[in-house]
Design a protein around this nucleic acid. Sequence first.
DNA 1: CAAGTGCCTTTATC
DNA 2: AGATAAAGGCACT
Length: 296
Amino acid sequence: MEKIVLASDQPFDLDLTLCCGQAFRWEKNGEWWYGIVADKPFKVRQGDSVLEFENANPEFVEKYFGLKDDLPLILRQISKDKHMEEAVKALKGLRILRQDPWECLVSYICATYKNIPAIKRMLFNLSKKLGEKTTFNGHVFYTFPTPQSLAKASLQELASCGLGYRAKYVMETAKRVVNGEFDIEELKVEPFEKARKKLLALPGVGPKVADCVLLFSLEKLEAFPVDVWMKRIITKYYASHFDETFVRRVSFKKSLTKAEYEKLSLFGRNYFGRFAGYAQEYLFHFERLKAGKALG
DNA sequence: CAAGTGCCTTTATC
DNA sequence: AGATAAAGGCACT
């Protein structure tokens, strides 16, 4: 077992970070969280100012849980108003993970128009069917399917995991990776807009999915995903930043046009600054907690 | 408990 | 450009 001593001036809350709906394949068993990242299963628990883990090296753990982010600085920068201050106060220690980009991309293609329990189920099914089985600590894990294994699968197999019409998007995206048309890793070193554009060219990837992938796996902390919750949050707490007709139109409709999406997302980036993604995650989870939707 | 609504949206079509 | 419909099927009420 190894451990990282958590600096007293750098808050971290493992439970919040893994429960807030950014990653879908973590399971808590007792005080240990079990997960598998980049084909390697490991477990983590948080003690008093210490993070303990087994089967992972400290550098990886530090990176994956965003412990290198200067959270006090970030929280100071995004605390632009009373509501945000409240969210920050309630959720201090929540950090943005650095997920595996491929898993993150497929996860969010699958996540469209689904709720979180259903997303978890789909990704579990997909991994069980097309990933590789490993065991650790008496627990069974499945690696996330590679682009090759997803490209080779049949649409029928993907659909049987519960993907529905998303199966063809996942399939086509996997094929573009396999044939070299698309390389997600290289997006890490590209600027936000350029990386975003390349993601948007993929089937099943709209602005919301692209922003999630940029934020949760590609180190673009300025990305500001806008889902139905964020749409409600912005029109509820930040209405004064838009004209009335826009707010009325947007809150009335269930889905957003591309232009409306960009307007809301751009507001987030401009208003909260270069760590807008953190603001988004705090607002999102805070609202869901208040609605009683994020307890499990 | 059943049936209706909603879901961390995208795409196709007009 | 903007509106509208359709798309698995599960989860929640």
